[in-house]
């Protein structure tokens, strides 16, 4: 369908979108997280162990590793309940790094030499099927009882609690489901690159996902999707800039934050586009 170069960029883009959405979910409930690379690592290693060592079918392994990641997410979520803002950012960062160091030393999954030999299972179709399912999920969430509860917690946690929202449950849910999605992303990633080692899942990767989301905008789920796509494609499109392209990338981020600190996409923009589209048809 595409040249293999374009296909690989699109597949990475799809995986990045999945990761950005996994971060957006706790974000939408007011919880910032730098733990997503850690959850991704858990998904990647767990699914590889299942397909490679235990002979599980890929999709079952993918689902189970998502669940494992979700359980870890709930565990991290517990101490995170009363912690906010910068403190939560640092807590999740420390957790992500601990996951990385754990896999670096865990001989069962290859330790420092990493883990390879998985089958190529991830392709354009299954990655974008999952992206499409997630879009449906987030669209429905945005117009649902729990979606509103999450948003109200982001706006004012205390008022949300007084309005009758069990914020402990809601936070654990947001964290857990976010980790589940990140676990899926990790499984897809492992069965595309076919070799994983722990330095790949370091804190810089978590920061990268974080940048995707804030760049795109945190008000609505289209933000992370568009933000991720632009930031994944920009370095490829400006290949002609050669060694200066990463500097260009950095500049784009700084300039956008100056011009649109709320991120590229906000609710108002989506409303305007919808209204305009309705007029056309």
């Amino acid at each position: 369908m595409f040249s293999s170069y374009i296909e690989s960029i699109l597949i990475f883009n799809g995986i990045h979108i999945i990761m950005a959405l996994s971060l957006y979910l706790p974000f939408s409930a007011g919880q910032i997280s730098l733990a997503q690379a850690g959850f991704m690592a858990i998904g990647a290693y767990a699914s590889s162990v299942m397909t490679l060592f235990w002979g599980f079918p890929f999709y079952i392994a993918l689902f189970l590793s998502g669940l494992l990641s979700a359980m870890t997410g709930v565990l991290v979520g517990f101490p995170a309940i009363r912690i906010k803002g910068i403190y939560l950012l640092l807590l999740t960062l420390a957790f992500g790094e601990m996951v990385r160091v754990f896999f670096l030393n865990f001989e069962f999954t290859g330790g420092a030499s990493g883990m390879g030999g998985m089958d190529l299972q991830t392709n354009f179709v299954n990655v974008y099927t999952i992206v499409a399912i997630l879009i449906i999920f987030f669209y429905r969430l945005s117009k649902s009882r729990m979606g509103r509860a999450f948003e109200s917690m982001r706006e004012d946690e205390l008022a949300a609690e007084v309005m009758g929202i069990n914020i402990v449950k809601a936070k654990l849910l947001a964290f857990g489901v976010g980790a589940f999605i990140a676990g899926l992303g990790g499984g897809l990633y492992a069965h595309y690159v076919m070799y994983i080692d722990s330095p790949k899942f370091g804190f810089l990767l978590a920061v990268e996902f974080f940048v995707f989301v804030v760049f795109g905008g945190m008000e609505i789920f289209w933000g992370p999707i568009i933000g991720t796509t632009l930031l994944t494609l920009i370095p490829e499109v400006v290949r002609f800039l050669k060694e200066w392209r990463m500097i260009f990338y950095g500049l784009v981020i700084v300039v956008l934050m100056i011009v649109r600190p709320q991120g590229l996409i906000d609710k108002k923009l989506v409303d305007d586009i919808t209204r305009y589209a309705k007029k056309l048809f």
Binding site: R145, R148, A160, M163, G164
Partner: peptide, 8 residues
């Protein structure tokens, strides 16, 4: 609508 949360 958020106010309706605990009755739904």
């Amino acid at each position: 609508m958020v106010g309706r949360h605990c009755r739904t």
